[in-house]
Each structure stands twice: as C-alpha cells, then as structure tokens.
Design a protein around this nucleic acid. Structure first.
Lengths: 302, 302
DNA sequence: TGTAATTACGGGATACGTAAAGATG
DNA sequence: CATCTTTACGTATCCCGTAATTACA
C-alpha cells in the first residue's frame, strides 16, 4: 500500500502527453515495461481503460481523456505546492516569533531588528520580552534568547557570545566602603543578588589574569536586596546600595563612562554565555535560520 | 522511485486533520511507526519541516499549514477525478461509435437503437455502415457487428445469434427451372454468389433434418452474377435471376410471405454466426458493455 | 523486418510491522 | 505512569529491469 490514490498519476500524465509508452519511459528514465505495468495497475484500480492502444498507436479513451484533464491540473497544482515549500525555504518570509530576556532584549536585540527587517523585507517579527521560562513549542515561539546556563531541554542552542560578569558598583559606594582586595572580602560588602533561578548568593569567580594560576573561588555573599529582575538590581546598584555581579552587556557602557567602576578587576564571574535556542528538527524554516545567522553575525557585546 | 511528487501526501493530510500521528495511523490501518516515517520522508524530500511536534502535541508549521491548504484541495480533486471515472463506469454515457454491415444494420440494428437510446439517455450513437473490413482501433470504432467467419484479429468477439443460410429463390424461378432434389443438383442452377471474401462459389451445406445422418456436402456452384453486396444479390434474386444461399435475417420475412421459397428445405448453409466485436482490454467502458448486453438480449433473428 | 507494447521472471530496494526507547504531561 | 513519537531491525512486498513474446506497419 503506497500513495494509493495518486499511484501512477504522474506516469499516466506523461504517457498521455507523449502519446507513447516508450517515449514516456525514456522521459522518466524507466523501461517501457515499467510504464506499461504502471498504467495497467492504474486501470485495474480505476476499473476503467484509459488508453486504446496497439503497438503503433496509443490514444486516450473517452474516459481517459476526461481523467487526464483533471490529472494534468492536479499534477501542476502539486508541483506548484512543492515549489511553494521550496521557495519558502529559499526566501525568508512570514512572522518570526522571538522571545528574549527583558533588559538584554531591549538593549541589544531591539537595536538590531531594524537592520534585519530591512535585509528581509518579507519577515515580520513578533517580540515578547520576559524573564520567566518560556516553552517554545507550547507558546509557538520560533526563537528565544537565553542567558546563562541552559535549562535541560531538547531545544537546539547556539552560542552567540560569552556572558562576562564583573563585580562593580558606583564610585560613591567604594568611597564609603572601600574596595575588596580579594574575593573573600566580598562577604564584608552589601552584595545585590540576582535570583533568576536557584540560590545565587554563591558567587563563583575566576581569575581573569592569565599570568596567575587559574583558580575558581566561590564566595557566599549576602546583602539587603535580592531580585529576579536585572533592572531592579541595576537600579539599586546605581543608587549606591551595594555591589553587584553583573554582565558586561548591562554595565559595560557605565564602566567606560566611569558611572560604575569594577572591583576585583582580576576576577570575573564564572563564564556563562548568551545563546539563541530554537526547536529541533531536520529542517529549519528560512526565517529562523536567517535570523539566527544574523544574530551570530551581528551580536557583539561591546 | 514511486509516485514521487505525491508520495506521502495523503498521510500528511490525514495527520494534519487528525492532529495526531497515532490517530491518523489508526484511520489508515497502519502503525504510528509507518506514519512517522512517511512524514519524515516527506519532510526530507521537501526540505522543510511540516509539523512541530512533541509527544503530546502535533501542530502544523507555518510552511506545513500553507502546504496543507493546497494538499487538502488536491486530494479532494483527486478523489473527485477517481469518482468521475468510477461513475463513468457505472452509468453509460458518451458517444458510442458503432459499425455494422449495411443491410444487416439497416434491417436489424437500427430498429433496436431507439429502445437503447431511451434506456440510456446519456449515450449518443454514431453509426457507420459498410461491408468492408474496419479496423476498430484505427478508426476509433467502439463496437462492430460481424457476420460469418471472423477475420483473424485480436478483437474480442461475442456471439449474438446463429447465421442460418438457406437456398432460396422466387417461385417464378422454380416454376421455370424446377427444384433441386439434392445439393448436387445445384450445379445445374444459376447460383448467385456473395463474394464477401475469398471464393465463395463453394457452397457448403449440411442436412438440417436431425433424423438423417448429419453430413456436409460441398457443391461448387456457378452463376452469372457475383457481388460483394448482399443487396445486389438479394435484388437479383427477387428479380428471378437465380438461386441464392442467403441468411434468414435477410430472407426470413420473404419466406414467410411466400415471396421467396426455400429449395432443399432439409439443408442449410454451414453454420456461421453473427458476432459483436470490440477491442480487448481488462476494462470495458460502460457504454460498450451496456450496448453489447443489450444486443445479446434483444437481437433475435425471427 | 523492425519497432512498440506486453508478459514472464528474478532480484533488490523500499516500506511496513514489531518491539524497544525516549519524551511529555 | 500512561500515552505518543521516534528509532532499530528484520522481513515481506512490491516494483523495476532484463529478456522473451506478441502485435502491427
């Protein structure tokens, strides 16, 4: 049992057009034998004779002619449908549903969208920002951006950029409280903790200076503010409430302007990364593929 | 290599409608495994993912949804095309091209046509009469009526009725020349010979009376008129020119009215028959089948 | 006699089912 | 934990090609 209702249709159309079994066979890279048997099976299945044929002439039956009319149209529609799929593969189009963390999205993704939309004018983008976990399949999201460790899932993840985090605060804070000299000194400071997931008041720092032995130090920090919202931590930091272990994509500009300064400059947070994730599958829609490629190309932090 | 472009389309439509691989599999009397692999192959061939699926949810991709729109229409068109063929099989319709010998056709076929056309109002009949050999396939004839021995051909022949031939002439002829007492006496008479094919001046007669031993006698006859046209022989016979070995379907009425009388009443021509012939093939169009059945039912000579 | 359609026959690719694994709610 | 999709694997079927046959010009 095969394609059932469509079995032999294409061969039938070729034979009808060619007016010959052997010519059709050559066109199809098959033997006349195969063509003959296909037509025979088709006639058996339909219960009607489609061709009146001698060895010298092949002519459509009245029934066969009517059937051919319809089949020719059907075959061309089928070809067009397949072409449409292939073309949708070639040229990105349609609506791309994107999900990203709120702050990162606003700062680093949105500024890129205009360029992408210009490059691919047939693509619409539908962005949602939130910091909670999003089930891509469940919510119909095509692409999401994830920062830090990836949740165990069956999504495909592609690393876009490292996610360097540094300890920093406003100059006024350090004027009041002094700089920590070593990671262990952080226990003496008011550390603002971002609680995206499990307990994050263990800050894991590595030595960024390659000359020294690479070591990882874990410090249990504490402070008077925890939040699962990067913006809240960031705001409190700017207000001089305490220190934070924040990613460069968030504080990089402030460090350059001096609005924030880095403490423990030889250390940074254990490396995590920024990822783009999408549903698995042998085939990626062109809009998704082009967007991912675009992000990988253009998303440079600093 | 199979139905190529249509492979998997029907399964795809079923899955899309059912929203589930396993339900579609049950509908199709297949295993979920088979359905999964079919969809997989289809996606491979198209180079695009058609469903986003977890084990709990199967949803059409954007590309898949567009493809489904077209495929659903295509499948229904295909079903309608097949239904049309099957219905054309069920209800005779269309033009039936019929060929028959001139005299027999006019006398015995034409009177039946009105009834047939009434019974099958969707059938048109296109009759041609001639006494030459007609190549059905070559001339696009659906059905032909043949009398006597059949030419060696690959046509299908169905016997409709016996073709009894008797020796007869007008009473005036016998008043002048007397009746032949035995077949051998025919050599003394002026025998009008119908030369449809090879030499027919050997008349082969069999004893029609069952009480006597069945014997076949061949008499070489001669006369002053041969024709390949039954009408010509018949006309000459009525004019009293001579005797003829003529079929009952031609002279039956005259024998009953006494316009003609039979000679050698215990003998008749070697039996031949009246056939309907048509092109071979596993499948017979309904119009042809119904016409043949009709002829077999209604064509009774005398 | 040469070409075209058909048939016989054997082999091989294909696609199925069974069974097990993986995943999801 | 029950159900659904997917994969692994063995097998049977189907279908094609080769070659011989028949038909037709």
């Amino acid at each position: 049992m095969n394609a059932q209702g469509f079995d032999g249709i294409e061969v039938f159309v070729r034979v009808a057009r060619a007016g010959s079994f052997s010519v059709a066979a050559r066109d199809l890279d098959q033997t006349p034998s195969a063509v003959s048997k296909r037509i025979g099976r088709l006639e058996d299945r339909l219960g009607a004779r489609l061709f009146d044929r001698t060895t010298r002439r092949v002519r459509l039956t009245e029934v066969g002619a009517a059937f051919f009319e319809r089949c020719a149209r059907i075959v061309s529609e089928m070809e067009e449908a397949e072409r449409a799929v292939s073309q949708s593969h070639a040229a990105p189009r349609g609506t791309l549903r994107l999900n990203a963390p709120v702050v990162f999205g606003c700062r680093h993704v949105v500024p890129l969208l205009a360029e992408f939309l210009t490059a691919y004018p047939d693509v619409r983008i539908d962005v949602t920002f939130n910091d909670r976990f999003v089930d891509l399949l469940e919510e119909g999201v095509d692409v999401a951006i994830r920062i830090g460790e990836l949740a165990d899932s069956n999504l495909i993840a592609r690393r876009l950029a490292p996610n360097h985090r540094v300890v920093c605060g406003v100059p006024a804070y350090f004027e009041r409280n002094g700089f920590p000299a070593r990671p262990a000194d952080l226990t003496e400071h008011n550390c603002l903790v971002y609680t995206y997931r499990a307990s994050r008041n263990d800050w894991s720092l590595v030595c960024a200076n390659r000359d020294r032995a690479k070591g990882q130090e874990v410090v249990r920090v504490s402070g008077n503010l925890e939040a699962n919202n990067a913006e809240a931590i960031y705001g409190a930091l700017l207000d001089g409430v305490g220190l934070g272990l924040l990613p460069l994509w968030l504080v990089g500009a402030d460090l350059r302007t001096g609005r924030l300064v880095q403490a423990l400059p030889d250390y940074q947070g254990t490396d995590s990364a920024i990822y783009v994730v999408y549903p698995p599958g042998r085939h990626l829609s062109p809009k998704v593929r082009s967007f991912i490629d675009f992000l990988a190309e253009r998303l440079r932090i600093e």
